[in-house]
Write a protein that binds this DNA or RNA. Structure first.
Lengths: 245, 245
DNA sequence: TCAAAAGTGTTGGTGATACACCCATGT
DNA sequence: ACATGGGTGTATCACCAACACTTTTGA
């Protein structure tokens, strides 16, 4: 039997299969703390709780394309780098049915974060409270950081707290040896801003001169020649991220 | 409407969904080179080509459980640590239908590798030829290393070459700062064996005294007191892996 | 002139590299 | 005795943390 003939007789629906979704962790910074875009579920299940933006994967789209679609439809953003994080497949993670979800991570600079909040009234920003240091891992808490939220730590839907914790872990791990830190900054930035980003993600203060030199020696920073404006003290040099050649 | 009532009216089959599978990269060492367990496809599609062991994810099993089941049914192995690698979702990766596959990585010590080969007549061992160094990434080639295979580099089915390349990349990345290196060794081993494992995975020679001290200073090695036997030269101390406390 | 933050020079510690060397064992 | 690979001591170097210090700006 030829391969073509075999395929024409193949029944793709012979077995039941889990549903497949993507969930997006959209991370940014707020007042020097890591924060995330969430939306409050209007419908069951978990109505009223806060969830990561997500959606089902269509038959004719790749996982990356599904992530981009969710980014566009639920956050109004395009052209943001999305990276696959992990795939979550616990049996009871969704009470409706068996849903396996591929989690994606995207880093939003302040400007994109603001655009998303302005364009999508249902989205809110929450600050992530990471109670562990280094790469210890463990649960994270999520605090209101937005007029649309009130009071207490937020209850997250499904296993989204777990996804969020893994996102922080991954981010911390990649910060030293990759260029992820720059994704949270505007095109021009000062070394102090870059250090603030690193400190926010790592959750620890860093030594200024050491950080400075480490970054400059790496060769990823190109001085723009212009300087910060509007300070009441010596203005800092503005740098641009220059891809490691 | 209550959540319970909502759920009772929910139709899980409202949308078509991709099929979901797991594929296992079972890595070991052969003559000091990284090698992998493959099986030759008897059926369409890609009949005759070599593939990673895999299987569909059932509705009532987690992804990890599916990986363990495949490990048991297709390689005859149990109690091997499996780690999720990446999820592959290209549209045309399988000609039968849309299949999204969660790739898992497991490291087999020589003994488990042999058990699998002896117990499962269809399995073969192939040597992986990695034409790049460091974490550059890129395609890998797969060479016969077994009486069941002949001659030329093997043609892999589906996107399994891509999965294999990512497995090598991940392994190299984790080798320095994690305990993955020990998973490829028997319980008792010499420092030279450990160094051979590292050199095989990294694809570069390492400095002996430096490697020695780095490993011993890390505090993960416990001397067993006994020594290698059957050498025609000074027998080396045997060590055990001691979990970092 | 002062406060505040940018930016630099110097020093000490840690760990990797490289080399030379000694040690134990079977033949 | 000697070949072979295991194991150790030591000098050197690169890198990084910490501190003290100078510089530049607006008020």
């Amino acid at each position: 039997m030829s391969e073509a003939k075999f395929l024409s007789g193949y029944d793709p629906d012979a077995y039941d299969r889990p549903a497949l979704a993507v969930d997006l962790v959209l991370l940014g910074l707020h007042d020097g703390r890591p924060s995330v875009l969430l939306l409050q579920r209007a419908e069951h299940p978990h109505a009223g709780r806060w969830a990561l933006p997500g959606g089902f994967v269509a038959l004719d789209e790749t996982l990356d394309a599904a992530a981009e679609r969710v980014l566009r439809d639920k956050a109004g953003l395009a052209g943001i780098q999305c990276e696959q994080l992990y795939t979550f497949g616990a049996l009871d993670r969704d009470p409706r049915m068996r849903i396996v979800s591929v989690a994606y991570l995207a880093l939003l600079p302040e400007r994109a974060f603001g655009e998303a909040l302005d364009g999508m009234p249902k989205l809110s920003r929450a600050v992530i409270d990471v109670p562990w240091t280094g790469e210890a891992g463990g649960p994270v808490a999520v605090l209101p950081a937005d007029g649309r939220m009130r009071g207490e730590p937020l209850a997250l839907a499904f296993d989204h707290a777990e996804i969020l914790a893994l996102a922080i872990l991954r981010l911390r791990g990649k910060l030293d040896y990759s260029d992820v830190g720059f994704a949270l900054l505007p095109e021009h930035f000062t070394l102090r801003q870059l250090q603030d980003v690193h400190e926010a993600i790592l959750g620890t203060p860093l030594n200024k001169p050491a950080f400075r030199r480490r970054m400059l020696d790496r060769g990823w920073l190109a001085p723009t020649g212009s300087r910060e404006a509007g300070t009441s003290f010596r203005p800092a040099e503005l740098y641009r991220f220059q891809k490691p050649s």
